[in-house]
Amino acid sequence: MASDPPPPHQTAIPLPPASGDQPLHLVHRTRIPIPPAAVTEAGGDLPDDTDQSSLVPIHIVDDASQLPHEFLNPSADKKLVIGFDCEGVDLCRNGALCVMQLAFPDAVYLVDAIKGGEALMQACKPALESSYITKVIHDCKRDSEALYFQFGIRLHNVMDTQIAYSLIEEQEGKKRAPDDYISFVGLLADPRYCGVSYLEKQTVRVLLREDPKFWTYRPMTEMMIRAATDDVRFLLYIYHKLMEKLNEKSLWQLSVRGSLYCRCFCINDNDYADWPPLPSLPESLVAEGYVPVEEILSVLHVPPGKMGRIIGRGGASITSVKECCNCEILIGGSKGPPDKVFIIGPVKEVRKAEAILRGKMLYI
């Protein structure tokens, strides 16, 4: 009689290190983290979670030698698409980045930024900045900010599933209300893209409220490992489902908006001159005579005491601006920067929003 498959997240024997003086890393196993590329590309179903073959290792990484060679050495000959996310303490420029998750088709790597420190994160920098590795992430803004200010990493070539979802809605002629962004839990639950319930996410949110230092504890607990893995394990499957629906125009808009969102909160003194240029229009769209609407990121400085006028009672003022301007308007808020408003969208709409917001600051 065949033995039952091991329970999810069973801790296996530590793998041997690459050399005698390098640390061991634990390997955990979980069911159906990432559907095989062949299944997702064919639009197939998620693997049966009772199938022994669906068990995929989870590597806890505190040394660069434990990461795949093709990740550490990006190459045009070996382009990659990986699921990506970060966890930390109130993650932003000042909130410590503790764990970085990388989901490959055959494994999940939990990069321990606390134990591995600066050396490990700098080893990951070429991959995170590479155009040869597509990073699939849901809402890249604060993750990018933390990487930039804490490690000098300019996150590049992201496929933001939140942006992709909105673009598909636009393709289908649907309109969304201001701030009506699809949550990651909502995207997972959507049967068109995954159809998976993520009930444990709420448990993790409660734990984070009760103990904001949840992600700092070492060794990582089973709950931490499971929560970190759950945030990336379906991203490659969702990626393929979204890509099936995006037309060429939307794909270009996705790359531009992803670039703008990555640099959004990473404000510096040189107007983002140290960031990669925005993606150019594909030749195929040029040949079709498509005239793109240029999209930009504008950062509006708000003098002391004026932010309340920008936001308004219960957010009414800024909501009204969002409703009349076809652009995204973001506030630094408690994570910062607290005196800035970030506006992303077509040039004409961004300038319109700027004028309205400046007018509100002048109002007495």
Results as ranks from 00 to 15, higher is better:
residue 182 I to N: 10
residue 155 L to W: 08
residue 248 E to M: 10
residue 9 H to N: 13
residue 86 C to L: 15
residue 176 R to V: 09
residue 62 D to Q: 12
residue 238 I to K: 09
residue 246 L to C: 09
residue 187 L to H: 05
residue 50 T to I: 00
residue 48 D to M: 00
residue 340 K to M: 04
residue 133 I to F: 06
residue 91 L to H: 05
residue 103 A to H: 01
residue 154 R to M: 06
residue 188 L to A: 07
residue 45 D to M: 06
residue 191 P to R: 08
residue 295 E to G: 08
residue 184 F to I: 09
residue 187 L to W: 05
residue 257 R to V: 06
residue 92 C to T: 07
residue 329 I to V: 15
residue 204 V to F: 04
residue 85 D to F: 00
residue 287 A to Y: 00
residue 248 E to P: 01
residue 65 S to H: 09
residue 323 E to M: 14
residue 73 N to A: 04
residue 281 L to N: 02
residue 115 K to T: 13
residue 331 I to V: 14
residue 94 N to M: 01
residue 342 F to A: 05
residue 222 E to N: 06
residue 33 P to R: 00
residue 239 Y to F: 15
residue 322 K to M: 14
residue 245 K to A: 13
residue 150 Q to H: 03
residue 313 R to H: 14
residue 324 C to Q: 15
residue 325 C to S: 12
residue 228 A to I: 00
residue 90 D to K: 12
residue 253 Q to A: 04
residue 236 L to Q: 08
residue 96 A to D: 10
residue 296 I to P: 06
residue 82 I to E: 08
residue 39 V to F: 05
residue 248 E to K: 09
residue 217 Y to F: 06
residue 305 G to F: 03
residue 139 D to K: 01
residue 116 G to A: 10
residue 347 V to E: 12
residue 63 D to S: 11
residue 224 M to T: 11
residue 256 V to I: 09
residue 170 E to P: 02
residue 13 I to P: 05
residue 6 P to K: 13
residue 274 D to P: 01
residue 261 Y to K: 08
residue 164 A to L: 10
residue 192 R to A: 12
residue 166 S to N: 11
residue 3 S to P: 03
residue 201 K to Q: 10
residue 215 W to S: 03
residue 70 E to Y: 02
residue 15 L to A: 14
residue 258 G to Q: 11
residue 182 I to A: 14
residue 263 R to E: 01
residue 16 P to C: 04
residue 188 L to D: 03
residue 308 G to F: 02
residue 284 S to G: 03
residue 65 S to R: 12
residue 22 Q to R: 14
residue 140 C to K: 03
residue 292 P to G: 04
residue 157 N to A: 10
residue 111 V to Q: 05
residue 341 V to C: 08
residue 33 P to G: 01
residue 126 P to F: 01
residue 111 V to L: 02
residue 1 M to Y: 11
residue 114 I to W: 01
residue 295 E to D: 14
residue 125 K to A: 13
residue 136 V to H: 03
residue 252 W to L: 03
residue 316 A to F: 04
residue 197 S to G: 11
residue 302 V to T: 05
residue 164 A to H: 10
residue 227 A to V: 02
